[in-house]
């Protein structure tokens, strides 16, 4: 599924919060990347984040 920039922000943000609260990273990250938001972005780009977006019907109508 192609995400909108809003959905991307929500996913990366939610995942970054999980990482900051101690969740283990799902990908190998370079040693210098320690910022949870950065790690979250790398995970998003690798397609490793196990989160999905539930869109409402009205949203889907407007988006299409």
């Amino acid at each position: 599924m192609e995400y909108t920039r809003f959905e991307k922000a929500r996913i990366v943000g939610a995942r970054a919060l999980q990482l900051s609260m101690g969740a283990p990273p799902l990908i190998e990250t370079p040693a210098d990347v320690r910022n949870p938001v950065r790690v979250s972005m790398l995970e998003y780009e690798a397609g490793a984040i196990p989160l999905t977006v539930k869109r409402t019907a009205s949203h889907q109508v407007k988006a299409s």
Binding site: L17, Q18, L19, M21, G22, A23, P24
Partner: peptide, 13 residues
């Protein structure tokens, strides 16, 4: 029975 549990981030292992 059924209920909702909160899974804390450090336990997402």
């Amino acid at each position: 029975m059924s209920d909702t549990v909160r899974i804390p981030p450090e336990q997402m292992t």
